[in-house]
Write a protein that binds this DNA or RNA. Structure first.
Length: 635
RNA sequence: GCCGCUGUAGCUCAGUGGUAGAGCGCACCCUUGGUAAGGGUGAGGUCACGGGUUCAAAUCCCAUCAGCGGCUCCA
C-alpha cells in the first residue's frame, strides 16, 4: 500500500508538472490515508482546487500508459551536478541532506523519504526513479521503492490543498501541499470516501449543531463556546460526577476570579513567557489616563503592553497562581499535607485563529483543575491517587482508546529546575503511576516541562487527529517562585512540591471528545433528554402528562411530544435526536397504567411495562450509570 | 498568523451578470393515526460585511470578518 501511494505521488507530481511547468517538487511521502506532495508553485500560477480535474485526467493517462518505474543510480557528485543543472534547489537540498545524513550515521533514519538510499553497500549513491525510460520520461530523485509500473494504480483521487513550510520552518519558503489517496481497487477508494462521509457526520461540530449542544457566535468571538441548555446538562453531570470522586479523595473546592494582577503572572513566570498566547492586559483607567497625560504614543503603549510594564490585570491563563495564594494564605504543618485544592477553573488563552477548532481548541475553557501541595515523600502516593481517578472516570465513560505519554528530562540538564535526585524520584513515581492504568505508555525524554515530569492522556478525534486531554504534572518551580513553605517535623520551613492535575483537561475538549466517542448517543445519565413521552394521538395527551410528571418527580429529564404528527413521525424525530428511551402511550397503555418502551438503537417496540416499574428502572439505570439498564429487562 | 477552499431562509444546500429558489424546520388548517417522515396553506432572506467595475452584481474584482482543511504553535 505504501508503495502504491508513493508511486501515485510520483504520477501526480508528473501530472502537475505537465499542467504547471514551473512547479518545483519538494517532498512526496505516503501518509496514513494516502500521500501528499509538497510543491513550490510559481507566484503567478498557484494551484487551485479547480485544477484537480485536469490533474486527475493527466494522471489517468499516465496510469493508462502503464509505464514501468525504473531505478538508476548515480554517484553523489554526478547526481548533484545533474540536479544543479535542473535548477531544483529543493531536490539539491534533499540530496545534500541525504548524503550528509548517511555520512554522519547510516542507522539514523532520515526524516524525509527523498534521496536516502536503502542500500548501505553503496553509501554515496543517489537513486533516481524514472516513470518509464530514464532520460526520456519524467523522473524524480527518490529512494524508492516503487510498484513495477503505473498501471498497478487501480484508483486514486486528489483530496485537498494545504500550505506547509519548507523543513517545517515557519520562516522558510511556503510550499503547497497537495493531498491525494490511492488504492489498488476502485471499490476500496469508494469505501474510503464513504468512511470519510461517516466520520464527518460524527464530527462534534456537526453533532453539536444537530443535537444543539453548543454554539459559537461570531458576535461573541472566535473560540468562545456558548453552552446551550442541552450541552450544559452534559457538562454539569460530568462536573458532579468528578466532583463527587474528588470529595471522596479528600479534595477541597475553591472558587477564584477570572482575572489577576499582571504582577502575579510575572511572579509565576506565565508573563512574559506565554505573553503571545494571552489576551492583552486589562489596564486600569487611571494608569491609561496618566500615561496619556504624559504624551505616551501608541507605539510606546504597545511596547509597554508587550513588556508587561503596565498597571493592570490579565485574564487568567492558568489557575495555579490563585490556588497557590490560597495555600499560602496560612501557615501549614507537615501534618496538614497534602492540601488538595480543586476548582473547575476557567482560563483564557489567545490561540492563533487558524488553530481554533469547535470545542476542541478554543480561547476560553474550563479546566477540571486541582493543585496538590505535598511533601517530597508523598509524591508517589498522590500521583497514584490522580491516576486512579483518571482510570475510574475514563472507565465509567467507556473511554478506553487513549494513550499515555510520560514526559521525562531530556539530555540538556541545564534547563530543568530541582535537584537531580528529586527528578529521579518524581520520574520513577510518574512511570509507576502510569503503569497502573493498563493502557499503552510511552516514555518521552525531553517532553518534561522545565519544572517537572508529567503524564499526559492523549486521544484521537474522529478524523484521526490526536489531542491532549488530561495531564498530571509534578512541579518544583512554582513553590520556589512563590517561596512556599510548610513547617516540618524539625520545626524548620521546608519547600512543598506541587502537583497540577486535570483528568479531563478542559470541559470543552472533553465533551467534544465524548460527543465523537458516543456519536452523540450519550449514556442515559449524561443524556440531555433521557425519556421522551409520545402520545399516539392527542386523546392520550393527558395520560402522557401524567407519565411526564411521574418521571420529573423521579428527577428524570423528559418531555412530551404533543405535536400533530403521527406516531411514526414522532418516533423518527426523537430517534434523530438520539434520545435513549421513548415511552409510547396510547389508550391501551393509559387504561392499564403502562408505557410502551422503545430504546435507542433497537428498531422495534420492546413491549409494555408498568409505569411504576419503568420510573424505577430508569432511575436505577441513571444511578448506576448504565450498569443496570431498562432495555436489559426485555431481553 | 500562513496557504487553499467556503459564506444565499433557523438547518442542509441549488442558483455564476438581467425581479431570490428547494427540502427540512416554523405558524395555521385538515387528518386522531399503535412504533423511523399523513395532507394542505402561509410566513420567513440587506444573498457575511465594506468598497469597486458595470446600464445592471448574490454572481466579476479588492479589502474585512467568520467557518473548513492543512502548516506552524500548543502550559
Amino acid at each position: 500500500m505504501l508503495l502504491l501511494r508513493h508511486s501515485c505521488a510520483h504520477v501526480m507530481a508528473e501530472a502537475i508538472q505537465r499542467i504547471v511547468p514551473g512547479a518545483q517538487l519538494v517532498y512526496g511521502p505516503p501518509v496514513d490515508n494516502g500521500f501528499y506532495y509538497d510543491i513550490a508553485f510559481p507566484d503567478d500560477r498557484p494551484l487551485k482546487e479547480g485544477d484537480f480535474d485536469a490533474i486527475e485526467k493527466e494522471m489517468a493517462a499516465i496510469v493508462g500508459e502503464d509505464r514501468p518505474f525504473t531505478r538508476y543510480d548515480m554517484s553523489a557528485e554526478e547526481g548533484l551536478a545533474k540536479l544543479n543543472g535542473e535548477g531544483s534547489k529543493y531536490k539539491v537540498d534533499n540530496a545534500k541532506r541525504a548524503i550528509e545524513a548517511r555520512e554522519e550515521d547510516s542507522s539514523e533514519s532520515y526524516p524525509t523519504m527523498e534521496g536516502t538510499d536503502s542500500s548501505e553497500s553503496r553509501p554515496t549513491l543517489l537513486s533516481f526513479y524514472a516513470t518509464g525510460e530514464p532520460g526520456t520520461d519524467w523522473e524524480d530523485l527518490c529512494r524508492g521503492p516503487h510498484l513495477p509500473s503505473t498501471g498497478r494504480i487501480g484508483a486514486f483521487k486528489i483530496m485537498s490543498l494545504a500550505s506547509s513550510y519548507w523543513h517545517g520552518d515557519e520562516t522558510s519558503d511556503r510550499l503547497t501541499r497537495v493531498y491525494g489517496t490511492a488504492f489498488f481497487k476502485p471499490k476500496q477508494l469508494e469505501a474510503h470516501l464513504a468512511l470519510l462521509e461517516e466520520s464527518k457526520a460524527r464530527d462534534h461540530r456537526v453533532l453539536g449543531k444537530k443535537l444543539r449542544l453548543f454554539h459559537i457566535d461570531e458576535a461573541v468571538g472566535q473560540g468562545l463556546v456558548l453552552w446551550t441548555p442541552a450541552g450544559s446538562v452534559i457538562r454539569k453531570e460530568l462536573q458532579d460526577f468528578i466532583g463527587e470522586e474528588l470529595r471522596k479523595q479528600g479534595y477541597m473546592d475553591v472558587f477564584t476570579p477570572h482575572i489577576g494582577k499582571l504582577e502575579l503572572y510575572k511572579t509565576s513566570g506565565h508573563f512574559p513567557y506565554y505573553a503571545q498566547s494571552q489576551y492583552a492586559p486589562i489596564m486600569e483607567r487611571d494608569f491609561l489616563q496618566g500615561i496619556a497625560d504624559e504624551g505616551c504614543s501608541c507605539a510606546e503603549l504597545a511596547n509597554m503592553v508587550a513588556t508587561g510594564s503596565v498597571k493592570g490585570y490579565l485574564l487568567k491563563p492558568m489557575n495555579c497562581p490563585h490556588h497557590i495564594k490560597i495555600f499560602d494564605s496560612q501557615p501549614h504543618s507537615y501534618r496538614d499535607l497534602p492540601v488538595r485544592l480543586s476548582e473547575f477553573g476557567t482560563v483564557y488563552r489567545w490561540e492563533q485563529s487558524g488553530e481554533l477548532n469547535g470545542m476542541i481548541r478554543v480561547r476560553c475553557f474550563t479546566v477540571d483543575d486541582a493543585h496538590l501541595f505535598c511533601r517530597e515523600d508523598q509524591i508517589a502516593d498522590e500521583l497514584k491517587g490522580c491516576l486512579s481517578l483518571v482510570k475510574f472516570a475514563f472507565g465509567t465513560l467507556g473511554l478506553n482508546d487513549f494513550r499515555v505519554r510520560v514526559g521525562l528530562r531530556g539530555p540538556d540538564s541545564d534547563k530543568y529546575v530541582g535537584t537531580s535526585e528529586n527528578w529521579d524520584r518524581a520520574e520513577k513515581a510518574c512511570l509507576d503511576a502510569a503503569a497502573q492504568l493498563g493502557t499503552p505508555v510511552s516514555k518521552e525524554p525531553g517532553e518534561a516541562a522545565f519544572y517537572g515530569p508529567k503524564i499526559d492522556f492523549i486521544v484521537k478525534d474522529v478524523i484521526g487527529r490526536e489531542w491532549q486531554l488530561g495531564t498530571v504534572q509534578v512541579d518544583y518551580n512554582l513553590p520556589e517562585r512563590f517561596d512556599l513553605s510548610y513547617i516540618g517535623k524539625d520545626n524548620k520551613p521546608h519547600r512543598p512540591v506541587m502537583i497540577h492535575r486535570a483528568p479531563f483537561g478542559s470541559m470543552e475538549r472533553f465533551v467534544a471528545v465524548l460527543i465523537e466517542h458516543f456519536n452523540g448517543a450519550f449514556p442515559l445519565w449524561l443524556s440531555p433528554e433521557q425519556v421522551r413521552v409520545l402520545p399516539i394521538s392527542d386523546k392520550s395527551n393527558d395520560y402522557a402528562d401524567d407519565v411526564v410528571n411521574r418521571l420529573k418527580d423521579a428527577r428524570v429529564r423528559t418531555s412530551v411530544d404533543t405535536s400533530g404528527d403521527r406516531i411514526q413521525a414522532k418516533i423518527r424525530n426523537a430517534a434523530e435526536m438520539k434520545i435513549p428511551y421513548l415511552a409510547v402511550v396510547g389508550p391501551r397503555d393509559a387504561q392499564a397504567s403502562k408505557v410502551s418502551i422503545r430504546a435507542r438503537g433497537i428498531q422495534k417496540n420492546l413491549g409494555q411495562m408498568d409505569l411504576d416499574q419503568f420510573v424505577a428502572a430508569i432511575r436505577s439505570e441513571i444511578d448506576t450509570k448504565g450498569t443496570e439498564s431498562v432495555s436489559a429487562r426485555f431481553s
